[in-house]
């Protein structure tokens, strides 16, 4: 039992790696369900009408690509599939701009959307919280030109989009500036807000969801998989749910084994002491 209590951490590492690798080689195809907060995002996007305007913000770093890209891909693809929606997009962190450019160019060509008419990509807006406040107060001043250098004043789509009050929905990915978005845009102008959040930060935003300030959220990879199930695809997030589930089960088994060995050891010590 002592061996189990003081098991070498490298053995645990190997077990975790095996538990992740095996389901990738031989998929279990476990069922994936969408939770209530995920369904609410789907409903918000699905109920958008032609002419509605959406502010799309990206604020996540490269290390969260696996979970955040899965979320963004399914939500943005659903958003672009809606007819007549006007999208204004911006990145609030440096690396977010890389992903934003990828999404805007790939989905624009897939759904035949035209830059300047159906969407405007503002690129990276520097300043963190200040950038969010500026976007909320006056978009034309916060980012006078789009990422291709076209002046917003010259774009037909931007004629009636001036500040936070002109949006019907804000979609954000990444926890970095979510507080600022609530403080400066959605609470001030009473705009709906949905967000994809990295799993490690999701717990911090529960009070905002419960209070209704956040209308729906995607919790890491689980949320992304749920959204994929709603739009009817088995994408990367759904496929990654198998290794996520198997490694979580391994952790549960390890906790149970660790506790059994701990209790047996404790009992043995107690009986040894009583025998003396």
């Amino acid at each position: 039992m002592k061996y189990l209590i003081n098991i070498d951490h490298r053995i645990i590492y190997i077990l975790v790696i095996i538990s992740i690798t095996l389901p990738l080689i031989a998929p279990l195809n476990l069922p994936v369900d969408a939770s209530e907060e995920v369904t609410k995002i789907y409903q918000k996007i699905d109920s958008l009408m032609p002419g509605d305007t959406v502010l799309l913000l990206i604020s996540y770093a490269a290390q969260n690509e696996v979970e955040m890209k899965s979320q963004s891909d399914s939500v943005i693809s659903h958003l672009f599939s809606k007819e007549g929606i006007k999208i204004v997009s911006a990145a609030l962190v440096e690396s977010g701009n890389i992903y934003l450019n990828q999404y805007m160019s790939s989905y624009a060509s897939e759904y035949q959307k035209e830059a300047g008419r159906d969407f405007v990509n503002l690129g990276f807006v520097y300043g963190g919280e200040v950038a969010v406040a500026n976007l909320a107060n006056d978009i034309h001043q916060a980012a006078p030109a789009d990422s291709d250098g076209n002046l917003l004043a010259d774009l037909e789509m931007m004629k009636n989009i001036k500040d936070g009050s002109d949006f019907d929905l804000v979609i954000n990915f990444g926890a970095t500036q979510l507080w600022s978005i609530v403080r400066y845009i959605t609470d001030v102008y009473n705009v709906d807000l949905v967000s994809g959040i990295e799993a490690v930060f999701a717990i911090r935003f529960l009070p905002y969801y419960v209070s209704g300030q956040l209308d729906g959220y995607l919790n890491g990879l689980v949320g992304a998989a749920g959204y994929e199930s709603l739009i009817g695809i088995r994408g990367p997030a759904s496929k990654h749910m198998d290794p996520l589930s198997s490694s979580s089960m391994l952790i549960i088994v390890l906790i149970i084994v660790g506790n059994i060995s701990y209790l047996v050891e404790k009992r043995q010590k107690f009986s040894d002491r009583s025998a003396r």
């Binding site: 490269a62 506790n259 209790l263």
Partner: peptide, 23 residues
């Protein structure tokens, strides 16, 4: 590189859970 460094957290969490979660 970023995702690899971030993924290492999973391994540490597994060992931490094994050692810390005791009744």
């Amino acid at each position: 590189l970023s995702t690899t460094i971030y993924s290492l957290l999973g391994l540490w969490m597994a060992t931490a859970a094994y050692r810390a979660f005791r009744v």
